[in-house]
Nucleic acid binder design. Structure first.
Lengths: 223, 223, 223, 223
DNA sequence: TATGAATGAGCCTTCATTCAT
DNA sequence: AATGAATGAAGGCTCATTCAT
């Protein structure tokens, strides 16, 4: 039966940066032209997923956006899901790197300022990759591979933050506080990029940093 | 002839109380039996949307869960979307009521304690209706009626909080801070109910309240 | 993911005659109209598989022949394969019944005559169901469920014949001889129904009976 | 523009020796390298058709088995069908040669023994080329060129046997008996090579010869 | 009021064949 | 002579919605 030949996805793609990006199931080596097509497909996928969301995104949309054909799509990806995974893994990399770069938190102005810089980096990442991140949290796929990737990511991300919160020696429960703060950062960025609320990025970044800082070391200047 | 699947729904259907409960298009008056069927469908819908999410939920699943037939479903709702709307409007009511009940924020222990109670009410509401709330934020339907309902709700909810934050006379930008705090509450509840992270409700509620309070009035007891 | 909901076929449908005939995966009870549609689909399937063969047969062809829709097809069968299985199991029943009715073989004219009658029954069965039988032997599906059904059938059929051959106390290896004779009967019928060779059924039946008889008890009247 | 998949092939291409080997449409003369590539493709085709059957065999499988590319495939064959035809014609040659070598049938032990040798040659041929032979009889392609080749072959093969049967002066209808015996030989070999039944080749060959002989001249030693 | 049955547009995916280098 | 890449017409299957009783 032909179906059984359906290229099984190669699963836990190892972390090498160059293999990360959605190579075709068979792991063919790509020439210049192929690389360009792959790039176009990844770009198109990011765009279309962003615009329509995972479920509403049609392979046809992606293919048109990439100015290529259905056949070509399946030359590079085993399925729509596979393309999404490729994008998601890239984003996950970026997020984890960011998590590891979280600066030590200190009560002084320097602490606040470096925290603000970090939140700003997050915001920029979210601006590019928000749609993919959001898709992870779509309730529908919680118990799929995506859900797992998303969950793992959230966990690792939160853990990183937990360490810093603990080091900050605040009275609150570090675990839960870290969770709450991650939640805040993620969602606030979502609201803003989804333009559900009209707020500039700078303002949001400032406020997020301040709230985070305050929740650990006390409010800023009281009125 | 089945309507094209992408066909936009028949529209606005204002939030009048009698349409609230998802009556069939004709707005028939229901006898006892009809009311029970309607109830079963609403329950089933809530359950199935919760389990599978909006897109993955099949009318067939709902109909089976309600122990009734497809034909009957369309006797009570114009579409799958219509059922979701009925559920969503109910939740929106609860949320707005909750928003209006947000207590005045004060720097003392009483303020913290009443804030905690309020967060707890939110958590309980979320426990029941999280899936519906989450569905609002699914990227895929941002620009549909749901998106609007969700957006409106978030806005009103945030506004309520904004008033309180402003009254608290903290130095931070009240608009954005309110947004950030709403984001935090919503997402934290999501993480916890989605069990992406193992935290008890009580802990989460406590911490959320503390973080909110601290971000306005300063950190709790430093270590 | 919707796909995962795809009705898994219920596998080894138990042998009850009434469940044999391709009930929908969920085993719904059918009313008069449903039964008629099911019948139309089975008929159409038999016809189309006969005309085009399993692979070349399109669900679309079957659906058109049954004057119904794609959707309806999948209401009754989980897949094209499932419909074929339903037909195949019916034929297998008929074949096994026939096998069990194989008369004792005796050297005299009565033996030859009852053998001829039996071969005639086989020919009539083959006339109706040849296409399905042939499809079993399509090389492509040897190692699928069909292949197994076909193989099992051939084995049981041959075994029945083996008993008779053994009882006939001929000098030849009963196992292999039975196999050879079954092979002969099947293929000869194929050649004739496929009209690859112009021979009337009566002639073929006569000759097959004679050859079978002769191979056990000696040639008929020599010239 | 890819040709429509159902497009009938470019036609008759008579059996002239130079087209026999599946030369590309242009009938180019091949150098050493080209000949090796052609050989690899033919081998690969035989293997893949054998493993998967005609329909399930993918050009991709063949190309991989031949360690070459799609482009190259179409340099040597006009289509998948064209490759199959090349293989089929070769087999047909072998079969016809075999048919012509059928020894005169005599009632004595020599007759039986030479018949056995001949059946053995058939079995060896079938072992190599069974899949191709079987494909001829796939119902799906009965009315295509393959069907014709297969039909012609069967006819010629049967005719050869008919002569011998007639010469044997048995009482039975020579035409039909020949058909029956060919059917038996072919199918029995199929059952055995398809391993649908566990019988050694030698046993099968012996029994086939005995049955054939007995059906003409009387049973062997009675018990 | 209820329901079993029917519908068909639309989606994802496959794969023989052609193109460009 | 060779090949990696591209193509797109089908085909199987799904599921929201409508029909007939």
């Amino acid at each position: 039966m032909p179906r059984s030949r359906r290229a099984s996805t190669d699963g836990q793609r190892s972390a090498g940066a160059e293999t990360r990006a959605g190579l075709p199931a068979q792991g063919r080596a790509l020439r210049a032209r192929g690389r360009r097509t792959l790039e176009r497909l990844l770009d198109a996928g990011a765009r279309v997923f962003a615009e329509r969301g995972y479920h509403a995104a049609r392979v046809d949309d992606i293919v048109k956006a990439a100015r290529t054909s259905h056949g070509t799509f399946y030359l590079y990806f085993a399925s729509k899901e596979d393309l999404f995974r490729a994008l998601a893994l890239d984003v996950a990399d970026g997020m984890l790197e960011l998590a590891r770069d979280l600066p030590p938190l200190t009560p002084d102005g320097t602490g606040l300022s470096s925290l603000r810089d970090w939140v700003d980096r997050f915001a920029r990442l979210y601006e590019r990759s928000g749609p993919v991140i959001r898709t992870w949290t779509e309730a529908e796929i919680v118990d799929t591979e995506f859900g797992r990737i998303g969950g793992d990511l959230a966990r690792q991300f939160t853990e990183e933050l937990t360490h810093r919160v603990r080091d900050a020696r605040a009275a609150i429960d570090a675990d839960v506080a870290a969770l709450a703060l991650v939640a805040m950062i993620e969602r606030a960025n979502y609201y803003v990029t989804a333009k559900q609320i009209q707020v500039g990025r700078a303002e949001m970044v400032d406020t997020l940093a301040v709230v985070m800082h305050a929740s650990l070391y006390g409010a800023p200047v009281h009125a």
